[in-house]
Design a protein around this nucleic acid. Structure first.
Length: 466
RNA sequence: GGUCCCAUCGUCUAUCGGUUAGGACAGCUGGUUUUCAUCCUGCAAAGGGGGGUUCGAUUCCCCCUGGGACCGCCA
């Protein structure tokens, strides 16, 4: 048995979307589980739409989520001559033929088929054409001589045996009239040359697989195994496309989803291992298999992504979390000054409590990050004269303290509660508003300690009291 | 329209002929809590319909229904 080799073959015509990421993930996971290799092939033969920036973006996205390919990326456009050679060979051994039907002719047939509500399929007119009767100056395309009789069975590793009548597959074009190869030719030649053992791709490629298998067979190449995974649907139940919002990786990273969380979510979308929900990277490699892939399409559910992210925020090492946070803020918000690091880092323990995303942590830390308190005007109205008195009183007492801790702060607060004949809220709320600008937020003791004495006194000073 | 695929709580799924159909997310209760949360209790929630096969079907087979994918000189 040869060593397992898989590939992910995106075309760089747009940003990588989440369905593609999952396909890449499954390929990568399977190869790593089998101690094989995973390759990246850039299918950039559509010169009009392929952009280098998308190629860069795709590689970056994969890396972000933890997928790295073995070896150099395989650039399809550099292999076009190989594809053309195979087409010529196919022509020579009678498995392909030149088709001289004009574009207009084909278009007309398509329209007629539509009118009759019949499926269009090329009528194989040129299949048995005598070359000598054709004028030399007419452009031709090359079509593959697809099987007409019998049926073919695809032994799909996910879907089981899929059988179709050969007649339903048309004589597809392998070389355009400008001499360039089309997808099905290029893909099969490349997969063969790259020695791929397992082709794992979306369900939408199933018909292509039947075509590509015929090319393999005609060239007497060793057939790889195929696995077609169900597509990811939108919440409306339609195929996910690049046009859907929240479909690219960037859409998730910009709201503060961490790569491990998304990886874990994607892994469990359409795949399962018993009742296990949380998989470390190592575990996902260890447990991944093709048998665990479900047969039905699954819908993307943002609340699960969020809760998975929340789980990772709560469980990963705080140093790691801080790294993620600073990187996130640097890219999507503003850079956190290093002097703020001293205050945020030790506060992560309570900041992360109320966060589902890195963005939430950022928002929760705003009172530390910004020197100016941004007051919520509604909340500010809650600070009445009595509250101001409490604030100033509290400030005085804090100024006499050497160090801040819950132990020393608690008696002060309790005294104020008694003195003003109020409850904890009566003291805690004005303080929180004065310090953070909002009545919502972390516990007052946490806020006070995280800010430090100097900053607390500054914020409880004239500005709030006037 | 043709070809193919799919079908368990709202969502992701477990079950590989015998279960009170399990878990997770979301939802809703209650408790802890100075707010918002966290955390902990609990509740509700499912095998599309009809035929078979079988002592027994969510599970196997057929039909219907519903959903989806593909049908480019794009990849």
């Amino acid at each position: 048995m040869s060593k397992v080799a898989t590939r992910f073959a995106p075309s760089p015509t747009g940003p990588l979307h989440i369905g593609g990421v999952r396909t890449a993930l499954f390929n990568w996971l399977y190869s790593k589980n089998q101690k094989g290799t995973f390759h990246l092939r850039i299918e950039d033969t559509d010169k009009e739409r392929s952009k280098n920036e998308f190629k860069v973006q795709i590689i970056k996205s994969l890396k972000w989520i933890g997928i790295e390919h073995d070896g150099d990326e395989y650039i399809q456009s550099t292999k076009i001559n190989d594809h053309i050679n195979v087409a010529n060979e196919l022509l020579k051994n009678g498995n392909a033929y030149k088709c001289y039907c004009s574009n207009e002719e084909i278009e007309e047939q398509k329209i007629r088929a539509k009118q009759k509500k019949q499926p269009y399929m090329y009528n194989r007119k040129c299949r048995e054409l005598n070359e000598k009767n054709v004028a030399k100056d007419i452009n031709s395309v090359v079509r593959f001589k697809s099987k007409i009789e019998g049926s073919s069975t695809l032994k799909d590793l996910v879907q089981g045996n899929v059988e179709i009548e050969n007649i339903t597959i048309e004589d597809f074009i392998i070389l355009r009239n400008d001499g360039t190869p089309t997808y099905n030719l290029s893909a099969s030649v490349d997969d063969h040359q790259m020695n791929m053992t397992h082709i794992i791709r979306g369900d939408d490629h199933k018909i292509n697989t039947f075509k590509q298998i015929q090319i393999y067979l005609a060239m007497k190449w060793k057939l790889p195994s195929f696995a077609h995974i169900p597509l990811i649907h939108t919440i409306e139940g339609k195929k996910l496309s690049k046009r859907d919002n929240a479909s690219t990786l960037d859409d998730y990273s910009k709201i503060g989803i961490m790569p491990d969380a998304l990886r874990n979510y994607l892994l469990r979308l359409g795949w399962s291992y018993k009742d296990k929900e949380i998989f470390t990277l190592e575990e996902s490699i260890q447990y991944f298999n093709l048998e665990g892939i479900g047969k039905s399409p699954s819908k993307l559910d943002i609340s699960r992504i969020l809760s998975m992210n929340e789980h990772y925020i709560k469980t990963i090492d705080e140093k790691e979390l801080y790294k993620h946070l600073t990187k996130y803020c640097e890219i999507y918000k503003e850079k956190i000054n290093s002097d703020k690091e001293k205050k945020i880092k030790p506060s992560l323990g309570f900041l992360k409590n109320k966060a589902k995303t890195l963005e939430d942590i950022y928002n929760n830390s705003k009172y530390i990050i910004f020197d100016e308190v941004n007051f919520n005007q509604e909340d500010l109205k809650l600070v009445d004269d009595k509250a101001k008195k409490i604030i100033s009183n509290f400030s005085n007492k804090v100024s006499k303290l050497d160090n801040l801790s819950k132990k020393v702060l608690e008696p002060i607060v309790n005294d104020l509660i008694k003195l003003n004949e109020t409850n904890f809220k009566g003291v805690g709320q004005p303080l929180r508003i004065a310090l953070t600008g909002s009545k919502f937020g972390p516990g007052v003791y946490d806020i006070i300690i995280s800010l430090g004495k100097e900053e607390v006194i500054k914020r409880l000073g004239d500005k709030i009291l006037s």
